[in-house]
Amino acid sequence: MTSETGSRDERASGASRRSFLKSAAGVGVTMLAPGVVLYAAAPPAVAQRAGRPADSKIRWGLLVDLNKCPPGCDLCVTACADENGLHRPGAHESQWIRKVNVHDPKTDVRREVPVMCQHCAMPACVDVCPTGASFKRADGIVLVDRHICIGCRYCMMACPYQARSFVHEPQENQRPEVPRGVGTAEACSLCVHRIDAGRMPACVEACAARAGGAMVFGDLNDPSSAIAKAIGTHRATTIRADLGLDPAVHYLSL
């Protein structure tokens, strides 16, 4: 793969990645419902080749099956904190992913919903950011360029998911792959540093390895991907779909 060059390579990369995805999907197969199979955690199920720019043909997304998300489990949350060098929850601490307890008073149904940056196709934070620090990468990942973030917090006002946090204190000992510092806004990056290295987000990996495998990561633009298929078959929903932001994070049994 590395010997390919030029624009032909650009075009081919999507297709080769897709076939790669298919061939790598053998591990961690889970039954969602009779006849429907989700492929979770087959590292690396995805590959963006190192040294190549993000591919605009791809749109990375997540699917969370809440039926497989047991109460009290917070493996995804702790995995995220470890991966990204976040501290334990506190009044002023950042939370890139959190579990929201949802209780329906009419039916008494309870769910725990992992909520993170929803990586919208039309992100409100990107629209409002005065400097363009909030931006959407070619492959749909919404990020903060901390080099030009001025810390105005307008993106936090605009985000409907309360997905953004503000770094309230000077930081030390950050993870080298995950720079983060005082006075700037931040949110779930979909573990972009891992994606660029052909790996999955830490939460997905942890959930598959040590919990119910409730999360699927993949390319929403590829109709043959496991995530796209599952979303289509099960009519997965998104949070606040009424806002029309087209989030990349989908939920089953919300």
């Binding site: 963006q48 190192a50 720019p53 993000a54 492959d139 360029d145 080099h147």
Partner: peptide, 18 residues
């Protein structure tokens, strides 16, 4: 390099801070 990395995701370069 910082712009390449942050905006394009090109990380394997000699000029990376790390």
């Amino acid at each position: 390099q910082r712009d390449e990395t942050v905006h394009l995701g090109v990380r394997k370069a000699e000029t990376q801070l790390d």
